[in-house]
């Protein structure tokens, strides 16, 4: 099993609903976030292009954050989901430095936190909170090993990219372009 997410940049409007939904679902304190939205505009008026992307931990196959963790708090869980075990984490910040996407942050309680792909929901067969709320339905989630999962199906029909492939982390969040 390999969980992955695909996000359609042609549909995302940058509303940030995915961010609030994650906060209320996962008790992310106000002032912190596990996902965020980036807007990139290129060109000169009126020859313009804007790409909007909702970003989060990429649950990398080759994740430096797991490797550099001195206690094993950062680890791969079921389906390749990268998780942090709260009471194994010493809050050293190494994993924060190791992530090319700045996907992690130190929770006010001291441990390092980040997107969990909403493992608690996924286990119950639900979609991650951000996917479930997105008004443009531009996010697809599922198991890459299952050819019928929404994410496998969409990746078959659309062009896509990952972020900073040259960092060599093998991300599992795909951007449809």
């Amino acid at each position: 099993m390999r969980y992955a997410m695909a996000i359609d940049t042609k549909k995302c409007v940058g509303c940030s609903d995915c961010v609030v939904a994650c906060q209320t679902e996962n008790d992310v304190p106000i002032g912190y976030c596990r996902d965020w939205v980036v807007e990139v505009t290129d060109g000169t008026y009126p020859q313009l292009e804007t790409e909007i992307r909702s970003e989060r931990c990429n649950h990398c196959d080759n994740s430096p954050c797991v490797r550099c963790c001195p206690t094993g708090a950062s680890h791969y869980a079921e389906g390749g989901i990268v998780l942090v075990t709260k009471n194994e984490c010493i809050g050293c910040g190494a994993c924060i430095q190791s992530c090319p996407y700045d996907a992690r942050y130190t929770h006010p309680d001291g441990y390092v936190d980040k997107c969990t792909f909403c493992m608690h929901r996924v286990k119950k067969g639900m979609e991650p909170a951000c996917v479930a709320v997105c008004p443009t339905k531009c996010m697809y989630f599922g198991d890459l090993d299952d050819p019928n999962s929404p994410v496998s199906k969409i990746l078959k029909t659309r062009k896509f990219k990952v972020l900073a492939p040259e960092a060599g982390t093998k991300p599992n969040v795909y951007y449809l372009i």
């Binding site: 509303c15 940030s16 609903d17 961010v19 609030v20 939904a21 209320t24 479930a132 709320v133 997105c134 008004p135 339905k137």
Partner: peptide, 19 residues
């Protein structure tokens, strides 16, 4: 959380509703 049977939202609130 949006009501799935509601044609105004189809189970998905906008960010303001979620917030």
């Amino acid at each position: 959380i949006g009501h799935p049977d509601d044609p105004h939202c189809n189970g998905r609130l906008c960010p303001r509703g979620t917030g």
